[in-house]
């Protein structure tokens, strides 16, 4: 892990790292990656991947049940007016 890779990951995750953090994090992340590499050495052939919760997906019936307390959601917004959430202009 070098600084360039860290900067790219930080950019994708919208994280603002200080210069100090940029220096410290590569080492820490490298440790984690090495641990993952160790895990990869395990022989898992014949073991089905269980990435998610066990069991099948629970399905809901397609019946409307509105939340109703919209103010609870809009009230949290930094800027809300005329029915819309307002954000800094997005240029397409």
């Amino acid at each position: 892990m070098d600084i360039t890779q860290i900067e790219k990951i930080a950019e994708l995750a919208r994280l603002h790292l200080t210069e100090k953090e940029k220096k410290e994090i590569p080492e820490k992340l490298t440790e984690i990656l090495e641990y993952i590499d160790q895990l990869k050495e395990l022989d898992t052939s014949g073991v089905p991947a269980e990435l998610e919760q066990s069991g099948n997906l629970r399905l809901a019936e397609d019946i409307v049940d509105e939340f109703g307390k919209i103010e609870a959601l809009t009230g949290n917004a930094p800027d809300f007016g005329d029915g819309f959430f307002r954000v800094k202009k997005i240029i397409e």
Partner: peptide
Amino acid sequence: ESDVSLVD
């Protein structure tokens, strides 16, 4: 508007 985007 000129300086904001509206989200629905």
